[in-house]
Design a protein around this nucleic acid. Structure first.
Ligand SMILES: [Mn+2]
Ligand SMILES: [Mn+2]
Ligand SMILES: [Zn+2]
Ligand SMILES: [Zn+2]
Lengths: 142, 142
DNA sequence: ACCTAGATGAGAACGATTCTAAACTACAAC
DNA sequence: GTTGTAGTTTAGAATCGTTCTCATCTAGGT
């Protein structure tokens, strides 16, 4: 029995209660092709859930993160983004427009813990590559 | 002629006006062994500059960043940290207490830009290694 | 059908950062 | 040394993302 991909089953498998809001938020992230902010989610669901609170979105994405259904990525300033792609991967960030692109390392990183952090227990790592995205490069005044 | 290391000359070389506040902020960062927040700086200089505004600290670290005298590092939530070590290097972050440790990659990262970001111009990258620092590990309830 | 742990919603509160506008000052030009 | 002015500082308000509070509501087990 493979883990099903629809929101309701994913929530149940994770031991979370199935509420209409949660289902909609998770489904939105499943459908969304990218890295959504809380506001992206909130705004997109306004029509269907006019009375849903931003708190609900925050609460939900936090729980989805805790059970590993999404991954929070915070790049510098601005709002956190939520990634339905929970495989280990990294990001290119456009310093002009904030656009985010996935990228995968060809080989895992060798982290050598320095002396002054002797005993540091590595959990995971994230590479943030900064630069100019193709779109912004085109618009460049040169 | 080597670039001098005292705050006044560094500011002049960078083409910034030398004000007492700027000198003190830069000197603080030069002396500080670590990754200071705006509040660290602000609080530490309260005695000498009782009327200095936090805005001044923000303005100053922003300018120091712009001329490359310090590097801003924003790890997830909380306040940005300012690093007087501007050589390319990366950080271990303790997910418990927020402590930051420098680390250097043994060899530069090979970034292969994915198809959907074709043409992305890489400027630099930063690796954030998350885990538990030795101090927090000791205090662990196990 | 009922009960209750857990979820939701509205708004207040919060912490980090930016903005505003008036007073001040570094420093270049005379 | 005096002056002019562009850049700097300051206090406080404003903004933004996020968390908190607490009263109301509901999912899901019994
Ligand atoms: Mn991603
Ligand atoms: Mn560092
Ligand atoms: Zn861009
Ligand atoms: Zn720690």
């Amino acid at each position: 029995m493979q883990a099903p991909k629809d929101a309701v089953h994913l929530l149940k498998n994770a031991g979370l209660r199935v509420t209409p809001q949660r289902e909609a938020i998770l489904q939105f992230l499943l459908d969304y092709n990218g890295h959504a902010t809380v506001d992206d989610i909130y705004t997109s669901l306004q029509d269907r859930f006019p009375s849903m609170s931003v708190s609900t979105v925050y609460n939900t994405v936090k729980q989805l993160s805790q059970v590993g259904l999404v991954k929070e990525i915070g790049v510098g300033d601005g709002a956190s983004r939520f990634d339905i792609n929970v495989e280990p991967h990294h990001h290119l960030v456009c310093t002009r427009c904030g656009a985010l692109f996935d990228f995968y390392l060809e080989e895992p990183l060798r982290v050598s813990v320095p002396r002054e952090a002797e005993g540091f227990e590595v959990e995971d790592y994230h590479v943030e590559v900064r630069g100019i995205c193709p779109r912004c490069k085109k618009q460049q005044v040169s």
